[in-house]
Amino acid sequence: MASISTRTKKDGSKSFMVRWREPKTGKAQGLTVATESEAETLKRLLDANGQNFEIAQHAILTNAKRVPTVAEVIQEHIDLLIRPSSGTVKTYQTMLDFHVKKITSQRRHTRRSSSSTSVTWSVSLELRASDSVPACRGPTAWHSRSSVLAAQ
C-alpha cells in the first residue's frame, strides 16, 4: 500500500513524497510531487492498480489529455473570480446556464472550435441579444475579431 509523507523545504514550502513497493521487484520506490492533491491521486491510483506505477502513470497522462468543454472553462472562470459581487456571479452563472450550456450541449471542446466557429457563435449571440440585424460591419471589424480569437 502506498503512503504519503510531507516534506518541508528550507523556504517553508511543502512537497509531498509518495512511497510504494514495486510489485515485480519488491524495491521501494518514491516520487515527490508539488501538491497534496497530486499525491493523493497518485496514491489512490497505485493502491487501485496493485502498486504498478506504469498503469498509474498511464491513467494520469490519459486524464491530463482530456480537453475541457467551453462550459467547463467558463465555469472555472466564474469560480476563480476574485471578490465578485453576488449579482455578478448570479448574472454570469445565468448566462452560462441559459446561453452557453444550452447552445453547447453537444459537448464541444475548446480545441476543436475554430476561430470561424467562435465568430459565428459570437454574432449569433449578438443577434439574439438585440433581436435585430446588427449594423453593417466593415472587413476591419471582422478581421480584428478573427485575429483576437485566433490569438487565444
Rank of each mutant, 00 (worst) to 15 (best):
K24T: 13
S115P: 01
V123I: 07
T62V: 08
A39Q: 03
V148A: 10
G26Q: 03
K27L: 06
L61T: 12
T6C: 10
S115A: 15
T41Y: 04
L149G: 06
Q93Y: 07
K102F: 04
V133C: 13
T35L: 02
E40G: 15
G12C: 05
S132H: 07
D11G: 00
R128A: 12
S86G: 08
R44A: 15
E76I: 02
T25Q: 07
K90R: 15
T69F: 01
L96C: 00
A71D: 10
R83T: 09
A56K: 04
K10M: 07
M95S: 08
K43M: 05
T25K: 07
P68R: 12
K101L: 01
T120P: 04
M95L: 06
Q57G: 03
Q57M: 12
T6R: 11
T69K: 09
L149M: 10
T35I: 02
H77Q: 09
S130Y: 07
H58P: 00
L125K: 12
A59S: 12
Q152S: 14
A64L: 13
A2R: 01
F53R: 13
L31N: 15
Y92L: 07
N63R: 13
V89Q: 11
E126M: 13
T88I: 10
S5D: 03
S5V: 14
T120K: 14
P84S: 10
T94P: 02
K65S: 02
L125M: 11
